[in-house]
Design a protein around this nucleic acid. Structure first.
Lengths: 345, 345
DNA sequence: TTGAAAGCGCTAACAA
DNA sequence: TTGTTAGCGCTTTCAA
């Protein structure tokens, strides 16, 4: 029962390109050519090689290929929370783009922790040809250090200025502006914002837009909240107490949490108070009432990110990726405020 | 402006272990030892090496390490849909386990397509030391072929018998039994099941349980549906027409879709009809009414999967992983049927 | 405790 | 069109 040194894991030692070459009666170079679609191979020989590959069930080792080629064919993606559909949607879409380009995606989840984020990024660098950092929470200094490493890199959902770092953003500003405009048109004068993570660029942009809205006469109160349904649930009564006639939630989860609490409290939406979400997750359509929200085209964001990163990796430095536009979806959770004469436009 | 052959990507050529050795005045073997925590290195030398590593910002190439060691330190995970929180939760948890074991997770998403699933699995084999197939939809023959490849492998959410394939399942059977028992106790005699993907083991198990419940006098109608909220929304009126007093949805998404449609139709839940979900996603708590559902401990599933796979990879073949238990969460979406005398137990 | 050197499986010159 | 062979960056004997 003593396994030989190299048969520890399974009794069949790994099938290599040499095995294929031997059984096909060709050289490893030829096998490699066939593998890589180089067309200077005699069709007959090529067919023999392909047959051998099939018979032996040979698959090239990714490690060996990566070492020899100098690139791994992998792009690393870092997200703060994989369980958030916002990010999983983006990843799906990035993966799809990567796949058509012949590469794979290595995903890591930082659990919203800036320190873990740094570690994971270091690790990703060892594996990947390029990095996609989604909504990175890490301090600017770390980002700067990474930027100096020479690895092609793209940051999304965060604007980083003054660093040699490409970034692809979402136009949160316009999104919140659209929400505010919509509410103002309905007759609202006082709204309360349930704020998201303090250090998130996404939150900062929303706040910036709310300030802008104040210039147009909208009064905005802010209540610290968070980004989960639980956070929204917990902040609901505080939002109500603010005296505002509309709640602008950081995202759809928060809004759904608020809605659940309002139901419990017997607060009618939008009769007693209006409510808006952000992101446009699927569930926002299925709540009662359906949520007015700002749809972020996550598939488009993912695709754009994948393509931009590919461009960066290929050394094409022209043009910043830019910002992804968003779209207001008006649904039944917003209406005219009480006593406004009730003339929704 | 003509870049030299090896400086195409960035002007700094990759820092290798040789660079570290040189600047530390040691051999590559010694650097490797320090890197791998081999303690037969003189502390002073080791420190010098560590310094050099820090100064140079050296990170070992994953490809080279993988090639030399014969393993990549990566485990491949295949899921049918990354956007489904069920799977993203599992992945989060698997990743966490993998991380403590010093490995990373390569995730691929098959988009519920058995053919893509096969391709991706082939590809994962080239990268990973072990494979985790979540709810694979691929035909048994493919699974059998994979099982013969010698790569350590674990299948979750699908029972595969007669093959040298370990599987870790969730006790869907007991879950649905618990739901049926709960409904029966409330006085329901006729329920309608909104079925999930036809070829999914998860669906088959639910059907098996429903048959079991029929033996106890519950009448069960089945309506083909799907696994998304949209599917549920579309199937809602058919469910209503079945004449059942309770709807057993394939999962929470379907249930939430049904709920939304019922709201629109003015059907009261649970007054007019009861409704249950499955999986216990977060949102199930925040609907109106909150959903009675079966909570599947996805973190536990992920952890168990990660650990079981680790065991399999280390050659420890003892014991099948087994089945993860589930838990019925009774909430407000279920009640006594109309005219039953109204005595909820 | 250290270092030299032989691989690991593949790619890509370079020769033939 | 084909084959030989020198790397790719690291680990790991084996000697010293």
């Amino acid at each position: 029962m003593v396994a030989s040194k190299r048969a520890r894991r399974s009794n069949a030692k790994r099938i290599t390109i040499a095995d294929v070459a031997r059984t096909a009666g060709a050289s490893v170079a030829t096998v490699s050519r066939v593998l890589n679609g180089v067309d200077t191979v005699d069709p007959v020989l090529a067919e023999r090689v392909r047959l051998a590959i099939g018979d032996l069930g040979y698959r090239p080792s990714a490690a060996a290929q990566g070492l020899a080629r100098g690139r791994s064919g992998t792009i690393g993606v870092l997200v703060p929370d994989l369980a958030n559909p916002y990010f999983s949607d983006v990843i799906k879409s990035v993966s799809a783009v990567a796949r058509t380009a012949g590469s794979r995606v290595l995903v890591m989840d930082s659990d919203e922790d800036p320190e873990i984020e740094r570690e994971l990024t270091e690790d990703l660098l060892r594996y990947a040809d390029g990095l996609l950092l989604c909504s990175p929470r890490m301090p600017r200094a770390h980002l700067a250090a990474l930027a100096g490493r020479g690895t092609p890199m793209l940051v999304t959902n965060r604007q980083v200025t003054g660093l040699a770092l490409h970034s692809l953003t979402v136009d949160f500003f316009q999104g919140v502006m659209a929400v505010c405009g919509h509410l103002a048109r309905l007759g609202h004068r006082r709204v309360v914002y349930l704020a998201g993570p303090e250090h998130a660029w996404a939150n900062a942009e929303r706040l910036r837009a709310l300030s802008g809205a104040e210039a147009f006469g909208l009064q905005v109160a802010t209540v610290a909240c968070g980004f989960t349904a639980d956070d929204g649930y917990a902040a609901a009564s505080a939002a109500l107490d603010s005296g505002a006639t509309a709640v602008v939630a950081y995202n759809d989860f928060v809004a759904l949490g608020v809605l659940a609490r309002f139901h419990e409290m017997g607060v009618d939406v939008p009769g007693d108070i209006s409510l808006t979400g952000f992101d446009g997750i699927d569930m926002a359509r299925f709540s009662d009432p359906p949520l007015t929200t700002v749809a972020v085209p996550r598939d488009r964001l993912g695709r754009a990110a994948g393509e931009a990163l590919a461009r960066i990796m290929s050394g094409d430095e022209e043009g910043e990726p830019g910002a992804i536009p968003v779209e207001l979806h008006v649904r039944a959770s917003t209406g005219a405020p009480r006593g406004s004469g009730g003339t929704p436009s």
